[in-house]
Design a protein around this nucleic acid. Structure first.
Length: 435
DNA sequence: TGCCGATTCCA
DNA sequence: GGAATCGGC
């Protein structure tokens, strides 16, 4: 009998779970969840860890009802997978899209292939996979509105139904987890698991959606969907939400505008791939990446680099400065309510005593002025270390011969820039003039 | 604690 | 053809 292993990650549901469905078609199935300890991944915070624990317990019971055992393990993904996949002839998972996650998944894929195990990856928890929505020039959209127009015109895949099978006894999972005392407060506000996720969706569509477009920005009204923790852990898929809301708009056309507003907010989940590149120091602009990696590795960032990385996010990428502020807040050892938000507002030009709106940093020019020998870039972006000073701040302009001599392959060892500095500068000035 | 393109000046 | 300067964004 053929055996398939399903690696569950952020997809803790039975319905519309392409990896699980494919594995079930193949033969007998075991599911695996790994608490990944890879350095490149951020471990979940306390609250998310609490949710995850209960979500795992919930899905373990559901899986047992269709004859699937859930195993839970801890360690580096490739280490755990190498052991766990022994004896299986297929491994399935649903794709994830953050750079660090993709690196890990690619490593696993080749590792398993070397063991003679077939790996099949399936669409992750998105409406449309990133490479299916592109501009006329074949590049990812960098502005939400055209992205949304394009997404709306796309056929979003229909959700799959949950697989069936004969029940077995549910295993005890995540046994080492100890419920923190503060979790009692949380548990009064949330129900966790796939069933609860669908209840939340339908409560929202029935009761709060009509108030959503007007009320969503007013926290006291509490009319938002509250689906985000369910989505985060994959207890419900974006496709399921999409089609449930579309079905409502079809049945009650007078509510179509409300549905559209809600779905456009759902689509925001999928727009900012750039935010992830910024956070993880993979923008393709050396000084920005050095700063973001310093922040992540050390909990500190040089002040000039703070201004510059903030300027890139708020002005070139036109991402809400509060998103960047939240990331700094998480990562900085010296973040303080008195300065962190204030500094961000200064850069974004939205606070009192703001920097003038037209002050947009150019990280290449800044690098050439303040890191002329490239020492700082070399320290935190070692894959560029062998580039000569002349090109260390702008590898994308370096001649091919210089790149190859320095062991740099753009798009492979180091990313192409995710922003066109000139074009995004012009766009920012345009956008701010409009204000 | 800005960037950029145009202009001017000098070699 | 490069450095210095300046105004507009």
């Amino acid at each position: 009998m053929s055996k398939a292993l399903v690696w569950l990650r952020n997809d803790l549901r039975l319905s519309d779970n392409p990896a699980l469905a494919a594995a079930m078609r193949h033969g007998s199935v075991v599911a695996l969840y790994i608490h990944e300890t890879d350095q490149a991944l951020r471990p979940p915070g306390g609250a998310a860890r609490w949710w995850l624990h209960h979500s795992l317990r919930s899905i373990a019971v559901q899986l047992a009802q269709i004859g699937v055992t859930l195993r839970v393990d801890t360690g580096e993904a490739t280490e755990v997978m190498r052991r766990a996949a022994r004896g299986f002839d297929q491994v399935h998972w649903n794709r994830r899209y953050a750079p660090a996650q993709r690196t890990i998944d690619a490593a696993n894929k080749s590792d398993l292939a070397a063991q003679g195990i077939e790996v099949q990856s399936h669409p992750g928890n998105v409406l449309a996979e990133p490479w299916t929505i592109a501009t006329g020039a074949g590049k990812p959209y960098s502005v939400f509105t055209p992205f949304w127009r394009s997404l709306k015109a796309t056929d979003i895949a229909r959700p799959l139904t949950a697989p069936t099978g004969g029940p077995i006894k549910a295993p005890e999972v995540d046994a080492e987890y100890r419920e923190p005392v503060w979790a009692k407060k949380l548990s009064r506000h949330w129900k966790i698991g796939e069933e609860a996720a669908h209840e939340t969706l339908h409560d929202f569509l029935d009761q709060r959606l009509s108030l959503y477009p007007q009320g969503r920005d007013f926290p006291a009204r509490a009319v938002t969907s509250r689906l985000s923790p369910h989505l985060r852990h994959g207890e419900i898929s974006a496709r399921q939400i999409w089609h449930a809301a579309k079905a409502l708009a079809h049945a009650e056309p007078e509510r179509a505008a409300d549905v559209e507003k809600f779905l456009s907010e759902l689509a925001w989940r999928e727009a900012p791939a750039e935010l992830e590149a910024w956070k993880t120091g993979r923008t393709g602009i050396p000084l920005v990446d050095a700063g973001m990696r310093e922040l992540w590795q050390t909990g500190f960032m040089d002040n000039r680099v703070r201004m510059l990385t903030a300027s890139i996010l708020a002005k070139n990428l036109l991402i809400d400065w509060r998103t960047g502020e939240a990331w700094f807040w998480d990562c900085l050892l010296n973040a303080d309510v008195a300065n962190n938000p204030g500094n961000w507002q200064w850069v974004a030009g939205s606070g009192m005593d703001a920097s003038p709106y037209f002050r947009i940093f150019n990280p290449i020019a800044q690098g050439e002025r303040f890191d002329a020998e490239g020492d700082y870039v070399r320290r935190f972006v070692p894959e560029l270390a062998k580039l000569p000073d002349e090109w260390i701040q702008k590898p994308f302009d370096a001649p091919e011969s210089v790149l190859s001599k320095s062991g740099v392959t753009l798009g492979e060892t180091y990313p192409f820039p995710i922003v066109d500095l000139k074009a995004t500068r012009a766009r920012a000035l345009e956008a701010m003039k409009a204000l």
